[in-house]
Write a protein that binds this DNA or RNA. Structure first.
Length: 871
RNA sequence: GGGAGCUUAGCUCAGUUGGGAGAGCAACUGCCCUACAAGCAGUGGGUCACAGGUUCGAGCCCUGUAGCUCCCACCA
């Protein structure tokens, strides 16, 4: 082993070895139970960020754990074509070259897009490898691969045939910059300061005027009515009459509709069915025409008259000026309101009536809700089920058509001869209705999330009845961020149920966002993102992984900090050095199985601790409590193994007794090997690198069995007794520090104790670790001399003669302090034991423990009192 | 308007069937002792936001209050 921990010297090499040896490959094995994770496919446009790093680390840890536990573990990787995000990027790139989509044409553009994909899809995969991701690369899938495209077609056609996909004119969200529709979840709302403009509309044939309030005056060209509340006494008599739309001088009706809120504004609302979801509904109720006033790029169309061709905001500005000059504008009131923005380009989204394709959600939502209610799918933590219900129960139809080129094209053709609409799995040559040959495919592509929704089964071979699908589906756990529940998780659930008749996964492990040091979201605009690859370069992948898992609870956001990674790097260093200690000391010695050696108290103690850790870590991992598991392993490795056990082993290791040496090195090796296995899922590189040097091991640790709790190795009594030895050592160390005695000065110890055998057996350890030269058993305090400090412990009293360093006054003070501590413990235990409620209702085990504590403290109290008396 | 989360040591956060408050970092003291100074030993530091309630027992369960954060819906 190299003297220094240097992750760069082995991480890439190990990854190559793992990959080449086929360790990550999952092949159906009917003697094993499958455990499947499908990776949330990163966008091909993307670069690895901290969010990915967290997501991938969680998945890798789980899959490595399951693999070691003997499952047929499949972690299926892939990438997403990310229709809109990718198209936006390519268009930007083209713009720099002075090119437009139109210039290239659809085919030319797609050619370029595929070239882009070839160039960048590999990048994110390489980055995942740097992290140590043990996914089965032979199954790498791209959402626009042939198999996914087949699945998309199959699903589309099936839903179409069931009338669950339909085409219709609805209000949709339009991004004027991306020039495409967006689904409801792709719109992000933000409060914006704006105005509420009060505009006068004259009533036809009367001297009255109604004043409407609007935040988007430019849409007035599309007004086809004004509405008042039918119960509103102010305007009731006007219902059925008309108003004259200013500027355009068009006559539009006054309708009575509950939508008009009497309390808001003037109580009169202009109705623009083509540009507002509520108005659209009002329009439906009153048979109003929907008049679109905007073009796809957010400029005004011919309906705006002289404003035609102007951008919507420029039009607003000039129109307001005109209205003001003509006396129509009666009031401008500041008003903050929620404005929708495109989640890709941030442009303000326009609600527009448009003919689009929709998935009818009502029938799909119900079973998806039930599946979670019935625990076929479990959210971890549970609270996210509520978020899910809330959305599912109120979900509206899903607009799936996008006016883009990069994506799955909608498998619908229109016959120019007879007007038929044909939806088919395979491209039709002739019209099945009229036999005509003039078929034209729908120009639009599908929402990216339409193919993502099929991911858990499209990747496994759907629509074919593959052996993989039968074996690996439903998958076991989906690991993803809570920000993606609506986009993806919910859609996978209803899609799985609809097309596979089974939920896509049993558990959904949610994690939060990785924020920056100050708790802010990492973002490009803030420039506060931390590049995981740079962190890996500096500290190694294991340190980054551990820092992302340690102290993290499911569903909670976490902060990234260099300090945290540094602390983890120190842990790696610790593991490295401890291993080096064990391995170098094992050179030339025989490492024996535990059964063949005589275990000393310290051995039994550490082995016992190890069993508890194995049990608890496994339990925690099965509950996806990775943060808790990390903490337990950290503490065990650093405190118990390194700080205590390695130190305890030194007397034997450096002594002359060959048998003891062999025993010590055997236990050290045994525990180290287990630590490496236990830690491997979290920090795969360092553990495997070390494992290969551990005597008696062969091959990679990633295919070894995960340690199992062995009750025969629990040694509960011996382990408990050994705590007495640790107490003695700690007490002597503390006493030395307290009195300012140099740690290197060897002191003599005198003990009054009933555990002479235990202490004698561990004398070497005590002397070495406490920095003492001898132990003498005595029967009373005076034998230790006058200038001795007394440490009263459960195992007995230790007297440490310190000569001139002892200040009797301070010693009295200290003992009185300890007495007070012990007394308060006695009061606490006594109180409990005298509480009839506690005695009657508390579990017996607890009562017994409490009684034992009381006895222990009473004994200590007597000893301290005696000590004080002697001072 | 609806919903969720958070509030624990100076800082960042764990604490999952309710049974003596923890870690890392920071601070203080002392140590290079043949794995590790990226280290070791020791020490200090918390009315677990607040107020009630349930219970023999509450950081944990229930109700309410306050502050912060997030999500959804809607606001012409």
């Amino acid at each position: 082993m190299e003297k220094k921990y240097n992750p760069k010297s082995f991480e890439d090499r190990l990854y190559r070895e793992w990959e080449e040896s086929g360790c990550f490959k999952a092949v159906r094995d009917d003697n094993k139970v499958p455990f499947t994770i499908v990776m949330p496919p990163p966008n091909i446009t993307g670069q690895l960020h901290m969010g990915h790093a967290m997501d991938e680390t969680l998945q890798d840890t789980i899959i490595r754990f399951k693999r070691m536990q003997g499952y047929c573990a499949l972690w299926l990787p892939g990438t997403d074509h990310a229709s809109i995000a990718t198209e936006v990027k390519i268009v930007e790139e083209m713009k720099r070259e002075g090119l437009t989509k139109e210039q290239l044409g659809r085919d030319g553009f797609l050619k370029r897009a595929w070239a882009w994909k070839e160039k960048y899809a590999g990048r994110i995969c390489d980055q995942l490898k740097k992290l140590g991701s043990s996914c089965d690369w032979s199954r790498l899938t791209f959402t626009m691969d042939e198999k996914c495209s087949r699945a998309v077609r199959e699903v589309f056609v099936n839903l179409y045939n069931k009338n669950l996909i339909y085409r219709g004119s609805r209000i949709i969200n339009w991004c004027p910059q991306c020039k495409t529709t967006l689904s409801d979840v792709e719109v992000e709302y933000a409060e914006e300061a704006g105005n509420l403009w009060h505009i006068k509309y004259f009533v036809e044939g009367a001297q009255r005027a109604l004043v409407v309030a609007t935040t988007r005056p430019e849409t007035m060209f599309g007004d086809t009515a004004v509405a008042v509340n039918p119960n509103d006494k102010r305007y009731k008599d006007l219902i059925g009459k008309n108003v004259i739309l200013p500027v355009v001088n068009k006559s539009i009706p006054i309708v009575g509709d509950e939508h008009a809120d009497m309390e808001f504004g003037t109580g009169v609302v202009k109705i623009t069915p083509a540009h507002d979801p509520n108005d659209f509904e009002v329009g439906q109720r009153h048979n109003l025409p929907a008049v679109r006033v905007m073009n796809d790029d957010g400029t005004m169309n011919a309906c705006a008259g002289k404003y035609e061709g102007l951008d919507r905001y420029e039009c607003r500005k000039r129109l307001l000026k005109e209205l003001e000059e003509d006396g129509y504008l009666v009031k401008t009131e500041p008003h903050t309101h929620n404005v929708g923005h495109c989640y890709r380009c941030r442009a303000t989204v326009e609600p527009i009536v448009s003919k689009q394709w929709f998935v009818k959600m009502e029938d799909l939502a119900r079973p998806a809700i039930d599946a979670v209610m019935n625990k076929k799918v479990t959210f971890i933590p549970e609270r996210f089920a509520k978020t899910y219900y809330n959305w599912m129960e109120n979900v509206k139809d899903w607009c799936i058509s996008r006016q883009l080129w990069w994506g799955h094209r909608i498998p619908v053709w229109y016959c120019a001869d007879c007007g038929a609409e044909i939806c088919k799995k395979s491209d039709p040559d002739v019209c099945p209705v009229c036999g005509g040959r003039h078929l034209k495919q729908d120009e639009d592509v599908l929402d990216t999330w339409f193919s993502s929704a099929l991911w858990p089964f499209s990747t496994l071979g759907y629509p074919d009845d593959t052996s993989d699908l039968e074996y690996f589906y439903p998958t076991d756990v989906l690991v993803t961020g809570y920000d993606i529940i609506f986009f993806w998780v919910s859609r996978m659930i209803f899609s799985g149920l609809e097309h596979m008749r089974k939920v896509p996964f049993r558990d959904v492990l949610m994690h939060g966002l990785v924020r920056d040091e100050k708790g802010r979201k990492m973002s490009k605009s803030l420039g506060n993102g931390v590049d995981p690859l740079e962190v890996i370069d500096k500290y190694g992948a294991d340190s980054l992984r551990f820092s992302l898992l340690q102290g993290v609870a499911p569903g909670n956001d976490t902060r990234y900090s260099d300090a945290k990674v540094e602390a983890c790097a120190n842990f790696m260093n610790k593991i490295w050095n401890a291993s080096r200690f064990v391995i170098t000391n094992a050179e030339g010695r025989t490492v024996k199985p535990l059964g063949e050696i005589k275990l000393c108290a310290a051995d039994k103690w550490i082995i016992s601790k190890l069993q508890a850790v194995i049990r608890d870590v496994t339990l925690a991992l099965n509950k996806y409590e990775l943060g808790v598991a990390c903490q337990m392993l950290y503490d065990f490795t650093w405190s118990d193994f390194c700080d205590w056990y390695i130190e305890l082993s030194k007397p034997a290791l450096y002594g002359a007794d060959e048998g003891k040496k062999d025993a010590a090195i055997s236990v050290l090796t045994f525990v180290l090997e287990n630590i490496l296995k236990l830690l491997h899922p979290f920090i795969p590189f360092i553990t495997d690198e070390i494992y290969r040097s551990v005597p008696g091991t062969d091959g990679t640790v990633m295919l070894k069995d995960y340690p199992r709790y062995n009750s025969k190795l629990a040694y509960k009594k011996d382990a408990a007794a050994f705590e007495g030895i640790k107490d003695i050592i700690t007490a002597v160390r503390a006493a030395k520090t307290e009195l300012g005695c140099a740690p290197s000065k060897k002191v003599s110890l005198y003990m009054v104790t009933e555990s002479k055998r235990l202490i004698s057996a561990n004398q070497d350890s005590i002397l070495k670790l406490a920095g003492a030269k001898d132990i003498t058993f005595i029967s009373e305090a005076s034998e230790a001399g006058e200038k001795a400090v007394a440490k009263v412990l459960p195992v007995g009293t230790v007297y440490i003669p310190m000569g001139e360093l002892v200040d009797l006054g301070k010693e009295r003070e200290r003992l009185e302090g300890e007495l007070e501590t012990v007394m308060s413990e006695i009061r606490r235990a006594d109180g409990k034991l005298n509480n009839t409620g506690f005695m009657m209702k508390a579990p017996k085990k607890l009562v017994d423990e409490e009684r034992a504590k009381l006895d222990k403290y009473i004994a200590m109290r007597e000893k301290i009192l005696e000590q004080l008396k002697n001072l």
